[in-house]
Structures are given as structure tokens and as C-alpha cells.
């Protein structure tokens, strides 16, 4: 669905590339998590996959980015937006500033893509129900809490029903309930065939929901595999992505001689339940 070949990208006036040597092939109907320390290139990769770079901010891209078999660089902006939805990192900046109500805000993208009016209204209603924000539809986008604004930003992309959805830290402002809700919605989208790429620091959630986990470090992909494989990799400390509380507890227990020192460390709730429930 998304294929990146030898992609490198350098921001305008920057000396060094923000991304280099990116090879990526994402299957339709998959959820791919991307982790990496700040500055590793996550937001840049999100914008490259969504066709925002170099189109919007300039800079130089080498290599090719193809979505559904078509080179993103050759699509018009409207065509690109119709293929890939991007939920940007700071929801306060995703709000268009052009609309008076949340209902209009969510419909803004569809308006630009020429969706018929009746269809727009139906879709807004459906997506608002999905994200439990129906009661906010008549509010001003500026009278929302950070978490509510983030759900509106997500809704305004979901409503476009793009085959690919790229989300840059979409749960940063959400309460635990909202976070679980967003991941449940992603599971549904995946089952309906949407390709989801999610950039996120919450390792426990990626472990539970992603099919595949990529690690960015030093501006390139350094690990690629199932979340369980990647999080248990012995190189994990060098990537500065942290580790789950389960892993940290098992490490400390090993250090204190309470657990055997061989074998993989637990990375999930279930694995930790087996480690700490069964061992002694």
C-alpha cells in the first residue's frame, strides 16, 4: 500500500538529512507503530509518507514514495490528501481557524475535496459518534479542552476515509479512556482495510495493537519486526525509546537475584503475568 524506496529527505537550509536510507513496504490493512527518541526523524517520516514533505515545507527528497502504486510526487495535492490522511502532532495547530463550530471543522477537509453536502453531514455524525464527541458538534473549536481538540483533529481526518491514515502522536492529550477509544477505532479501521501508521511513545499500547513496530534512530530505520520481537531486542537501550514497566520490573528483579537471568524479558502484561506469577 505504501512503498518507500531509498528515501532521504533534507529540510531547507539544513546541512544534514533528517531521514536517510528509508526502505519501507506497508501492507494494506495493517497497523504499523513507529517509535524513536525525539529528533530521530519521526515527524519528518510522518510528513513524507503523507506527501507534506517536500510539497508543503520545501526541502529535498530523493528516492520514491508510492501510495497505492502511484508516485506521491506525481499526484496533485487534492489527490494526495484523498489517499493519505495526516493527524499532526499538535492538535492545537490542526484546527483550521476558518470555522465556527466543531461540526464545520470536521467537515472542512471534505468540503475541500468536493464531497456532496448530504454525505458530509452523515459522515460527520458517524465519526463523531465513533469518537464520542457528538455533544461537542455545536461548540466552537476554540472552546475545547486539549483532549477534546485532539479528538476533533482525529475526527477531521477519519471522516475523509482515506485508504492510509498517518497519525503523529494522536493520543498525547487524551485521558486513558480516550486513548483506549482511539486504539479501538484503529483496530476497526484496520479490519476494514485501512493502512495505519502511528507514531507514538506509549510502548505498552503499541505492543497491544500494532502488527509491526519500526524503530527510528539516527534518522533511519534501525529495527523492524513484531512489537514483541523489537521490544525484547538486546539493542533496545541504545535506541533511547525506553522500555515498558513490565520490562523494567523484570530487569530490576533479575538484578536483585529474584528472577533467572536468562531468557527474554517480558514486554507485555500477559508475559509479565507469566514471568512474575509462575516463576517462584
Amino acid at each position: 500500500m505504501i512503498v518507500l524506496r531509498e528515501v532521504s529527505y533534507t529540510y531547507p537550509e539544513a546541512a544534514d538529512p533528517a531521514l536517510h536510507g528509508i526502505e519501507l513496504n506497508l501492507q494494506p490493512g495493517s497497523i504499523t507503530g513507529v517509535v524513536g527518541a525525539s529528533g530521530a526523524g519521526k515527524t519528518t517520516l510522518a510528513k513524507v509518507i503523507a506527501g507534506f514533505l517536500p510539497r508543503v515545507d520545501g526541502g529535498e527528497l530523493t528516492g520514491t514514495v508510492c501510495v497505492a502504486g502511484r508516485n506521491l510526487a506525481e499526484l496533485s495535492l487534492v489527490e494526495a490528501v484523498g489517499q493519505v490522511g495526516l493527524v499532526i502532532q499538535n492538535p492545537f495547530n490542526q484546527i483550521s481557524g476558518a470555522k465556527y463550530t466543531v461540526r464545520e471543522e470536521i467537515a472542512f477537509g471534505m468540503e475541500n475535496l468536493g464531497t456532496p453536502r448530504a454525505e458530509m453531514a452523515a459522515r460527520v455524525k458517524q465519526v463523531a459518534a465513533l469518537l464520542r464527541i457528538s455533544d461537542l458538534l455545536d461548540r466552537s473549536p476554540y472552546a475545547l479542552s486539549g483532549g477534546q481538540m485532539q479528538l476533533v483533529a482525529i475526527a477531521s481526518m477519519l471522516v475523509l476515509r482515506t485508504p492510509v491514515l498517518v497519525m503523529d502522536e494522536p493520543t498525547s492529550q487524551l485521558d486513558p479512556f480516550g486513548t483506549r477509544l482511539v486504539f479501538a477505532v484503529l483496530d476497526q479501521l484496520q479490519q476494514a482495510g485501512t493502512t495505519v501508521v502511528i507514531f507514538e511513545h506509549k510502548l505498552e499500547l503499541l505492543q497491544a495493537h500494532a502488527d509491526r513496530l519500526l524503530v527510528l534512530a539516527g534518522h533511519t530505520i534501525v529495527a523492524d519486526g513484531s512489537p514483541t520481537e523489537v521490544l525484547a531486542d538486546e539493542r533496545v537501550d541504545g535506541w533511547a525509546i525506553g522500555s515498558t514497566r513490565y520490562t523494567r520490573a523484570a530487569r530490576l528483579a533479575r538484578g536483585r537475584g529474584l528472577l533467572p537471568v536468562h531468557g527474554a524479558l517480558p514486554v507485555s502484561f500477559e508475559q509479565a503475568a507469566a514471568t512474575f506469577g509462575g516463576a517462584r
Binding site: 527518541a37 525525539s38 486539549g146 492529550q173 511513545h201 533511547a240 525509546i241 525506553g242 522500555s243
Partner: peptide, 11 residues
């Protein structure tokens, strides 16, 4: 929300 968006080191 001081830890929002922070990576492992930032947190």
C-alpha cells in the same frame, strides 16, 4: 500535562 509528547529521556 508535563510529560505529554516526551520521549523516554524527556519523561
Amino acid at each position: 500535562e508535563p510529560t505529554t509528547g516526551q520521549d523516554a529521556r524527556g519523561a
